[in-house]
Design a protein around this nucleic acid. Structure first.
Lengths: 226, 226
DNA sequence: ATGTGGGGATCGTCCTACAATCCAGCGTCG
DNA sequence: CGACGCTGGATTGTAGGACGATCCCCACAT
C-alpha cells in the first residue's frame, strides 16, 4: 500500500515516522491539514497505537501540533518561527565554517549537494531543488562533525520546508541560491574561512528576508493553531 | 500513586514523559538500567500504550535507547558523547554571549541560577547543585532569546546529567564551578563580551576535561549498549 | 567444553472498549 | 430574525487484552 520511499524500517513505528515526514515534506499533507488518526492509519496501513507513537514524535519535532481532543495538524509556521529558525541556522552554520576542519574530504557532501541541485534545476523540479539546497546547508553544518548538530540541522531544515509552501514561485526562489552555493563551495575549497563566513551570513540574511517578505505579502490565513 | 513532582499534565502521556525524565535525572533509574514496560507501567500507573509513547519520545531525546526486542535502557554516555555535548555547548553558549543583548533584564535568569547554586551548596545537596549549575548555563544559552536554542540546551543538559553519575565525588566536582559562574555573571553585568566569551570558553574546557578524566579513570563498565 | 533444542518471558503490533471532549445541527426563546 | 442552549454523533485519549516474533536461559546431548 504505502509508497516505496522507505528505507529498511527497523520497526513499524519508525517507518511510520519516516513516511509521515516524507508526506509532509512533499506537501502531500500541507501545513494546516488535520490528520485524522483513523484515516491516516488506514491510509498508510498501521494501527492507531503505532500511529500515535509517530504523531507524538513528529509533534516533538515541531512538524505537527497536537491540540487536546481536537487532533493533530501539520504545523503552520509564523514569522517568529522563521526568524528563530534562521537564528539557529546562523548559529550553527557560521560556527561550522568558522572552525573549518583541515580535512578537505569533508567537502564531499557539500559538493554532492551542489551536483544534486544542478540536476534538479535542469529538470525544473522545485521540490527537489529545494531539497538539494537544504542538503547543501546540512552539509555545511555537517562540517562541524557533530552528530547532534547534524540532527539539529535536520530538524531545522524539515521545519523550514514547511515555509516553502508559502512561497509564490518556489522554483524561482530556489534557483537564485544555486549559484550562491556554488560560490560558497569554491571558497571552502580555497580554505578562506572569513570569506566563507561572510558569504554564508549573507546568504542567510537574503533567504530570511525573502521568506519573511513572502509571509507578509501572503494573506495571513488567520487560522491560529498555536 | 506517582510522586507529586509533576506540573499540570495536559495529557497522561506528557505527564509520563516528565515523570520519567525526572526519575532519570534524579538517578532513580541510573544509566544502564533496563526499564521493563510492564514493571514501569505498573509503578507509575499508566498503560503500556501510553508508556510506549513516552519511551519513544525519550529515546528520541537520547535519554533512553531502544533495543529491538530487548527493551529500553537508560542511556550510558561514552566519551564521544561527552565530547559532542561539549562541542554543542561551545557552539551554543559562546554564540549566546558573543551577541549579547543590550537588555540587562535578561540576566535575571542567570542571576537566579547563581542564587540557586548558593542555596544548594549551603545544603550540601550535590544533585541540586548540579542542577543549579546546569540552570546557569541554560540561562546563558537563553540569552540568545531563541526558543529552539532553549529547547536544544535543555536536551543537552539532560543528557549531560547522565554523565554526572559517573563522577566519583559529585559535590566537589560541582562546587568548583559556583565561583566561576559568579564571575561570569559579573562580567556579563559589566557588558564585556570578549571577557565573557573567554571565561565561558575556559569554563567549558575545564569541565569537559574533568568529566572525561573521570570517564577514563573509572573502569569502563563494558556493557555496550549501542 | 561445546553445540543444540526447548520453554518462558518480554517486546512489537494490532484490536476492541469506553469515558471525555468537541462540533454541528436544531429547536427554543427573546 | 438572531442568540442561546441542548442533544447526538464523531473523534480523541487511555486502558487493556491478544498473539506472533524474538530473545535469553538452561537443561541436555554429543
Amino acid at each position: 500500500m504505502a509508497s516505496p520511499r522507505s528505507q529498511r524500517p527497523q520497526s513499524v513505528a519508525e517507518w511510520t515516522v519516516g513516511e509521515l515526514r516524507a508526506l509532509i515534506a512533499d506537501g502531500e499533507y500541507p501545513p494546516g491539514t488535520r490528520l485524522s488518526e483513523e484515516e491516516v492509519g488506514k491510509q498508510i496501513g498501521v494501527s492507531r497505537n503505532t500511529l500515535r507513537e509517530a504523531f507524538r514524535l513528529l509533534a516533538h519535532e515541531r512538524l505537527l501540533v497536537q491540540m487536546h481532543n481536537k487532533g493533530v495538524f501539520v504545523r503552520t509556521l509564523d514569522e517568529a518561527d522563521v526568524e528563530d529558525l534562521f537564528r539557529v541556522r546562523r548559529m550553527v552554520e557560521l560556527a561550522a565554517v568558522r572552525d573549518l576542519p583541515a580535512d578537505p574530504a569533508r567537502l564531499a557532501r557539500v559538493a554532492a549537494a551542489v551536483a544534486e541541485a544542478d540536476v534538479a534545476e535542469a529538470q525544473g523540479d522545485w521540490r527537489a531543488l529545494g531539497s538539494a539546497n537544504l542538503h547543501f546547508h546540512q552539509a555545511i553544518a555537517g562540517l562541524s562533525g557533530s552528530p547532534r548538530v547534524d540532527e539539529l540541522m535536520e530538524r531545522v531544515t524539515a521545519e523550514l520546508r514547511l515555509a516553502f509552501h508559502a512561497m509564490e514561485d518556489p522554483l524561482a526562489f530556489h534557483k537564485a541560491y544555486v549559484e550562491r552555493n556554488r560560490q560558497i563551495l569554491a571558497l571552502l575549497r580555497d580554505a578562506k574561512p572569513e570569506a566563507v563566513e561572510a558569504a554564508v551570513g549573507e546568504y542567510l540574511a537574503t533567504a530570511e528576508k525573502e521568506i519573511l517578505d513572502a509571509y507578509r505579502t501572503a494573506t495571513p490565513p488567520a487560522g491560529g493553531q498555536g
